[in-house]
Design a protein around this nucleic acid. Structure first.
Lengths: 319, 319
DNA sequence: CCATTTATGCTCAAATTGAGTATAATATCA
DNA sequence: TGATATTATACTCAATTTGAGCATAAATGG
């Protein structure tokens, strides 16, 4: 019953991992440091070799270990991308299918060529200081003129960007990036040879190699959505932390400001944290240090951290 | 920077689709009708052929069209499985990676060899008449004796099955099936040559070919989870329906009974449905017929149908 | 000591949820 | 025909959750 195709070009599976962490209000992703100045950055990645890798996760851990050497906490498969024209398309080369993974870590380094601010790739996603002006100034005009020719994508654009009355859904990161790509407004669209794309991208935001910005967008979208129903945020925290630090991490990931007192009430009631009795020393009144209660992960697995931004507010500056 | 492996066995990607529908309280999945009496059933599937299929979804639509000819509504990628030993392992054969898809349809047929009751594959998942007795009678004893040797899996089992005080999470369908597989309690474990598996499976439930029961479990888990935050349930409904029919569909998918008045309140308030003015004719008082408001899909995309079972109750019998 | 900064406690109204009770409109059958 | 079963729908009520804001506490730096 199997239809084995004869003489087809070989399929190669690439395992690419978006390693995400936060550091003092910066939303970071780990890139490989081999990029030259003229070439965009890239995620750690490498091929899935069934003979060496019993599972894909074993494979990705090998490439991550060799290329960036970061200790991974939570790891999860995101999506398998296989559409033609979004990877290397050298004639005769094997068809590349890329499987994207998300990995979380609490071991980030300060801003370097290695650890990069995620919002430099998606500047329109950071609403902590309110709606980014580039949306109204650059993105919406450019998108609208493309939509004029592609009315079938109108509804998707409305939903993704929360236009005319709809709310901005912070988890639609991939949907937004894909629309900009389709509309030829990001650098990758030109690199992939799409005809409607200009050599100089219309929309600000740093590109990445291959389809890595797409994978990163998938990772951010998944993480933002998951934060609300699973306690994944603690994988981004150090062993002990103040509730303000926890809130800043949540705000950094979600890209919105949150109501302080309500966030505190939510976290305390959730049972996911317990006080250590120690205090942090910073500028104002010292804050109590908390730790994550690992047992709770199983006792209330569905509760998660249902943070709700409510009406947007600017978040306090990080210490 | 690419590590191209030389002379490795070829990789073959299989696209398998779980097509799900409901019919009068039966939770159905479409199988291919070529199964003999001695062989387990299978999902429609076939290889991804990059030269013919611009995207994987195009590929799967081809195989579904050829093998079962069902019109698909919502289609979504589930997961890519690549671990060794869960597919055909003939020596020298290409390594098979399988990409699972979920498809919803409102065109089911009555119980035949083609349309099969999903709960016959996962009888422990149907709690509409209360907790299935097979859990306490068969599954828990068998699982516990395996856990005695594998204490590292204790926590996962507690979470997946909601043991000692934890709640049964209806979306952990895959996690439960995988534990039963690992413990050697389902037929596929023996078929895959796992040493701890007995030729006669310890736990009731029909097997499927290859890893298709795993893919179906993923599909059911994803669908149950998604029901709560996206209006996917309407892809399972006919053009017009009564609120009771809608509730029965939700109960069928979730495998639990719901509070009738509260379900009605939830649905009406959601704005996803509108009355048609027509009435259904059945046994008791006629019910108003509703239709899905497609525009609402974009106006309140996040609301979905947050059905909450509350305390378990037996669901009313379907008409 | 006073202004500033940060943390934490508390209140309050609105909205949502969980669980019922009550009533309405049909079919069925004695 | 009229009682009875069956199904649908309306309405109530308390408990909980959410969104927003006010007030107070504990540090630091002049």
């Amino acid at each position: 019953m199997q239809h084995i195709p004869a003489g087809e070009p070989q399929i190669l599976i690439d395992l690419s991992t978006a390693i995400i962490g936060t550091d003092a209000g910066i939303f970071q992703c780990r890139l490989v440091e081999d990029a030259t100045d003229t070439q965009p950055g890239r995620l750690p990645f490498g091929p899935f070799v069934p003979d060496q890798h019993r599972t894909m996760e074993i494979g990705l851990r090998q490439w991550v270990g060799e290329q960036v050497g970061v200790a991974l906490g939570h790891v999860e498969q995101l999506y398998t991308f296989a559409d033609r024209g979004r990877q290397n398309t050298t004639p005769g080369a094997p068809h590349v299918v890329s499987v994207g993974y998300l990995a979380l870590t609490n071991q980030t380094g300060r801003q370097t060529r290695a650890w990069r601010d995620i919002y430099s790739f998606f500047p329109w996603e950071d609403w902590r200081e309110g709606e980014p002006s580039m949306l109204a100034d650059i993105i919406y005009p450019a998108l609208d003129s493309w939509l004029a020719q592609h009315s079938e994508r109108r509804e998707s654009a409305r939903l993704a960007f929360g236009r005319d009355g709809l709310a901005w859904g912070e988890e639609y990161v991939l949907e937004r990036y894909e629309l900009l790509y389709e509309a030829g407004l990001v650098a990758e669209a030109f690199a992939d040879g799409r005809e409607n794309a200009a050599p100089t991208p219309a929309v600000p935001g740093e590109p990445l190699q291959l389809d890595h910005r797409r994978i990163l967008a998938t990772a951010v979208g998944r993480l933002r959505a998951k934060l609300k129903y699973r306690p994944v945020i603690f994988d981004l925290m150090p062993l002990t932390f103040t509730l303000t630090q926890l809130q800043h991490t949540a705000e950094t990931v979600l890209g919105v400001g949150l109501h302080k007192q309500n966030f505190r009430r939510l976290v305390e009631k959730s049972g996911f944290v317990e006080a250590t009795g120690k205090m942090s020393k910073s500028r104002g009144r010292p804050a109590e240090l908390f730790r994550f209660r690992h047992q709770e992960r199983s006792e209330r697995p569905l509760a998660g951290l249902r943070v709700s931004p409510g009406r947007l507010r600017p978040s306090d500056p990080s210490p």
